[in-house]
Amino acid sequence: HSYDEAFARYEKITAQVLLTKDDLRSRERFLNARNTMTRLLDWKVIPIVNENDTVAVQELKFGDNDALASMVANLVGADVIVNLTSADGVFDDNPLENPEAAFVPCVENIAELNLQSMCRGKTGAGTGGMLSKLMAARRAASIGVPTLIVSGKQKFVLERVFNLEEIGTWVAPTQKMLSGRKFWLAYHLDPAGTIVVDDGAARALTAKGKSLLAAGVKDVEGNFGMGALVRIAGLDGATVGVGLTNFKAAELRKIQGLSSTEIEKVLGPCPHQEVVHRDNLVLDSSL
């Protein structure tokens, strides 16, 4: 009702759209949501999107509106995200803790930044903060959508933005974009378990673009089936990426550390030699 009244003063019509992760996880519901948003925009109705907190259990929550914004950008094929915050933009350190922190007008390659170190966790109130805004911007950048992070406390800020005034921090899209399918794997599904790999396998995945083979598997956590999305972690516990596994967890425990030629001796004929094929893998730099 508040949005209706506020926009009505400018003769604009709004519609409330409530989403959960489950709405975007199911392909059919994803397309229904996309069609609804497209129809509203065709009618010149402004969608007011929020998380449906009344029905969303913890595992179906986006977590914050920054994450939701990046998902909606993919849903509607957005050209840009304008993320209004309490800060003037992005700084190279947390300005609340370091008064010498320098303002960053443009982030050319967000995939190369250590966001945790820059933000030192959350900045500001609520479930978000600058860390969540930059993580959302990284997601959006991976599908070719730039983000402008700018203070919402400034008067007429949106008019100034769309008049191309240089304010806030511009986060450029990445040169190497994720396919829609890999974006789906990375952000719409939840890992059903974890595969721990040795240092050699981690380097092969991240530096050489290889598939994950059983020889590099050191441990398997969880009980997942073939085709499940799994987290791939290094020996230090850090996430290497996520991907779709070609083997059940029970099978992986039998063949971990084995060469590809030894797998059939243990499991019999297998249609796949790779534990996770590189075409079904999204690395941590894209997450």
Rank of each mutant, 00 (worst) to 15 (best):
128 G>K: 13
128 G>R: 12
129 G>P: 05
130 M>H: 01
130 M>G: 03
131 L>R: 15
134 L>A: 03
134 L>R: 11
135 M>F: 08
136 A>E: 00
137 A>Y: 14
137 A>P: 00
137 A>E: 08
137 A>W: 15
138 R>E: 05
138 R>A: 02
139 R>Y: 05
139 R>K: 15
141 A>N: 09
142 S>N: 11
142 S>W: 01
144 G>F: 00
145 V>F: 08
146 P>V: 09
147 T>W: 12
149 I>V: 13
152 G>P: 00
153 K>P: 01
153 K>E: 07
155 K>Q: 10
155 K>A: 06
156 F>I: 02
156 F>M: 07
156 F>C: 05
157 V>K: 14
158 L>V: 08
158 L>S: 04
159 E>S: 09
159 E>W: 14
160 R>N: 05
160 R>V: 01
162 F>E: 06
165 E>Q: 15
165 E>I: 07
165 E>S: 02
165 E>F: 09
166 E>W: 06
166 E>N: 12
167 I>L: 08
168 G>Q: 07
168 G>E: 11
168 G>A: 04
168 G>N: 10
169 T>P: 08
170 W>G: 02
172 A>Q: 14
173 P>K: 15
175 Q>K: 15
175 Q>G: 05
178 L>Q: 02
179 S>H: 10
180 G>N: 15
180 G>I: 08
182 K>F: 07
183 F>T: 04
185 L>K: 12
186 A>I: 07
187 Y>C: 06
189 L>V: 12
190 D>V: 11
190 D>M: 09
190 D>E: 14
192 A>G: 03
192 A>E: 13
193 G>F: 00
193 G>C: 02
195 I>L: 11
197 V>S: 04
198 D>V: 03
203 R>L: 12
203 R>E: 10
206 T>W: 04
207 A>G: 00
207 A>K: 15
209 G>Y: 01
211 S>L: 02
211 S>G: 07
212 L>S: 02
217 V>T: 08
219 D>I: 04
219 D>M: 03
221 E>H: 13
221 E>G: 01
222 G>C: 03
226 M>Y: 06
227 G>W: 01
230 V>A: 06
233 A>R: 13
233 A>T: 05
236 D>R: 13
239 T>V: 07
239 T>Y: 04
